[in-house]
Design a protein around this nucleic acid. Structure first.
Lengths: 220, 220, 220, 220
DNA sequence: AATGAATGAGATTTCATTCAT
DNA sequence: TATGAATGAAATCTCATTCAT
């Protein structure tokens, strides 16, 4: 595997500590490529996507991509990892807020639907490639992705546990509950997308929140 | 696209209305190919799977597959459709039983986890290729798959609606609730699979059922 | 690395023990490809040769070559190894004859020049790729080629040693003398080839033989 | 083919006839590039070598090479020609000495083995690319290289002829004898190299010298 | 003069599909 | 019907060369 020197690690920064113009331009171009790649991978999946299409969308020659990413698979991994990190950051922003556990849940649902709404590629990538990554890539990559996912689940899981401690939530397995939250948001989002409806709408939010908090069964 | 004559529709049946030996043999072979294809598609996805591998697994020569399916894509579609029909049949079996609405929900959850446990390929196909089908294939195919899925959701949806009428369920959108049930089972199953744990286990069943019926919030 | 099943190892032979017609045809085609490859590799070398050119010369589609050889490098190795084996066989034929040591030397020289004359590709391959093979290919291949070469040298070396025992040859290092014989024939052949002269001619034979046996220095 | 102006031919020399500092620096850099190129070409051959590797080894950017050589092929030719000229110079130094013909032969052998020992790249280049040059390059280049080689052979050849006149050497074809000397030294050197032994050692020198002068056959 | 990012032609390799047997 | 060799289009990737800075 060819090694792409990460130019930002070398002395391209000038004495003021600010990245040089060249370096900034390089980063912009890298972002452009990642953006194009994300769109194509989201639509076609890892294997059906072609570098031709990505290159055309990024408005670069095919060979140029190899100056930024050492292989198609590497580009793919970069795309997915970037998405996961962004996703996690946004989830984290919710969790650090000082609100009650059930407010947290409600805010989580809102946020996730918002993210999927604004970044439909993420929704599609998560749906299509969740297993692709863990299947095709080498062991190191595999475990890296698992760790990303696990961390995200853990963050939510801790809040659930906290809610249980406060006796505000039932004593369910916190980890499983966290997974349930992700699954619900993801499933509902996919469904809206496939029916060409807006993902981020009051109905979706209300439904998931109510269902999660109170279940479907009435009590007398 | 080459048209494969479906021999069962032509005069291969003898006058007694029973399929001829040849025709029965043909159906057996077709099943074998579909089985091999399902395994490979589930593991590799539509594009990464090769006819070579499928043919080898089916113990036929590659060219032979074309006597049964007009193209790789067609074979893929057949696989997915067969899976969806089987899935729907099993869901239907649950729904025709004469039990209370919340018993129905509980049984649905049990059944889905059981299906995924026994047919891990289905889980993987649904996860990886849900959108692949709707993306790559032509419009007619696309809508056919949507109809399958919609029917399945509708079947469950009706039962939810019935429960609401009986005032046993909250007045949530029945269609959305149905989707939520599928999403929860699917999400939890995927998670167990990725952690190399058994999908069909008491913990999973209890959790999903409790969460669905009662939500996570305690009441005083 | 894809494995090419060697069909001659399977049960394609009929009951009479004779290779089936298909198998024979396959071998003929394989020979055709090897022949085309030899010519192109000899002229261009491993890297400058292209599969396009080889395929065209062999009158097959490019992809077809991969049904016979798993890669360009593998094809190259097959070519070189085949040549080395043929070369060794012919040398062996000389050495098993019951003649005096210096007659053996003379016959060796004649034979080598004849071989190079009839198979100019061999001459060129040995010249260009002697190191290429030992450099680029993996360890196993490397040592296999070394063994071929060493065996050839050893065979001649033994005869030199025998001549020394009989006091017909000076007590020089037999192994080195063998190498000297090869070098002389090869060098002279290369030179004739580059000057567009015939390799196998009386002058070349006489010169090498006389020089080898008697040296260049006169005695009084 | 782009023409690289050879600055030393233009008015960059100052009025004193001494090359300017700039010009001297330029020549130093050119040498550095040639050195790096020689190493890489020797190891990989013309086609497998990359400008990237050469540039890195020379510690210049890839594009900079084009300020000194108009193309990869041109750089290669410069490398080989430089080597041939150096080689010829050293051979010439031997031949101008006032010693007996057989002393000359002995010294030639010593010198050649020494050269190969000190410049393993030359040995490898001669072995791998002897024909490459005459094959790939245009006619003019081809004949230039032939002329180099022929001159070298001729120089030695004349001395052999002189030895024959003096009745110190057998009346063999002097030209062919010269070729034989080169071949023997080259062949033995290659063999030592491939066996990871030192090229310049007493055994090699003694063997070649003895064999060349006296042949392998004993006399009574 | 020096740089190295960008280019795009061209290389190897894969694989769905065809077709003669 | 079954076969699997042959095909060739299309994919990934490399790298000599150019060119704006």
């Amino acid at each position: 595997m060819k090694i792409i020197k990460d130019k930002s690690m070398t002395n391209v920064k000038n004495t003021t500590g600010v990245a040089s113009r060249k370096e900034r331009e390089r980063q912009v171009k890298k972002k452009d490529i990642l953006k194009a790649a994300r769109e194509v991978f989201a639509q076609k999946g890892l294997h059906a996507a072609t570098l031709d299409e990505i290159a055309e969308k990024a408005e670069f020659a095919k060979g140029t991509l190899y100056g930024y990413f050492s292989s198609k698979e590497n580009l793919f991994i970069s795309v997915v990892e970037e998405e996961m990190i962004n996703f996690r950051e946004k989830i984290k922003d919710v969790l650090i807020q000082d609100i009650t556990p059930d407010q947290t849940i409600a805010l989580l649902v809102v946020t996730m639907l918002q993210i999927f709404d604004q970044n439909i590629d993420l929704l599609r990538l998560m749906n299509r490639e969740q297993l692709a990554v863990t299947t095709c890539a080498d062991g190191i990559v595999k475990s890296r992705f698992r760790r990303h996912y696990q961390k995200m689940v853990n963050m939510v899981s801790e809040h659930i546990a906290h809610g249980i401690e406060l006796n505000q939530f039932h004593a369910l397995n916190p980890n499983q509950v966290a997974i349930a939250i992700f699954s619900l948001c993801h499933g509902v989002a996919i469904n809206s997308f496939m029916n060409r409806k807006k993902i981020y709408n009051t109905d979706n939010i209300t439904l998931i929140t109510n269902l999660l908090l109170d279940g479907i069964k009435t009590r007398n």
